[in-house]
Amino acid sequence: MNVTVFGATGAIGQLVVDELLRAGHSVTAYARNPAKVPPSWSEKNVRLVVGEITDAAAVEKAVAGADAVVSALGPSLDRKATGLPLVEGTRHIIDTMRRHGVRRYVGNGTPSVVDERDKPTFLQKLVGFLGRRTLPRAYRELLGMSEIVMTSGLDWTIVRFSAPRNGPARGVRRQGFFGTDKIGVKVTRADIAAFTAAQVSDERYVNAAPAISN
Rank of each mutant, 00 (worst) to 15 (best):
R133G: 03
D118G: 10
F122V: 10
K36R: 14
L126Q: 10
A23M: 12
L73Y: 02
P85W: 05
R91M: 07
P39A: 15
H92G: 08
E52P: 00
Q124H: 08
G74W: 11
V149F: 00
V63N: 01
A31V: 15
V69Y: 00
T54H: 02
E19Y: 06
K80Q: 14
G83D: 04
I148D: 01
G107N: 04
V37S: 01
R47W: 01
E88C: 01
V50Q: 14
L15H: 06
T151H: 11
L48W: 03
N108S: 12
P39I: 07
M145H: 02
A57H: 09
L84P: 00
L15I: 08
E52T: 12
H100P: 00
P34F: 13
F129G: 05
T96I: 08
V106W: 06
L15N: 04
Q14F: 03
R91Y: 01
D78P: 03
G51D: 01
L86K: 05
L73N: 06
G83L: 11
P75S: 13
K125Q: 13
D95R: 12
S26C: 07
K119M: 12
G109H: 05
G83W: 04
E141F: 11
P39W: 10
G101Y: 11
V17K: 10
R99H: 09
S71H: 05
P39C: 09
K119Q: 15
V69L: 04
E141C: 12
V16Y: 06
P75Y: 10
R98D: 07
K61L: 13
L73A: 07
L73I: 14
N45E: 13
L21H: 05
V37K: 02
R91F: 04
T121P: 10
T96R: 04
I94W: 00
A62M: 08
K44A: 10
A58H: 00
G107V: 03
L48V: 13
H100N: 11
H100S: 07
W41H: 01
A11Q: 14
L48H: 02
G109W: 00
Y139F: 15
S146A: 15
M150T: 13
V59W: 04
V106P: 08
A62D: 02
M150S: 05
L21G: 02
S26A: 14
V70W: 11
P38E: 00
S152I: 07
R137C: 08
E19D: 09
R132H: 12
D78G: 05
R140C: 10
I148E: 02
S26F: 09
S112W: 04
G24Y: 07
A23F: 04
R32C: 09
V49P: 02
R137F: 08
I94D: 04
G131R: 10
G107W: 01
S71I: 08
Y139S: 07
R98K: 15
P136T: 10
V106N: 05
G128M: 10
A35Y: 03
P38C: 06
V69N: 04
N45S: 15
N108K: 06
K44Q: 15
R91K: 14
K44G: 01
L77G: 02
V87W: 09
I93S: 00
E141P: 10
N45H: 14
N108H: 08
A62R: 03
R103M: 03
Q14I: 13
V17A: 12
F122A: 13
V113I: 15
M145E: 12
E116A: 14
R103Y: 08
D67E: 13
G144M: 11
V87I: 12
R133Q: 12
V70P: 06
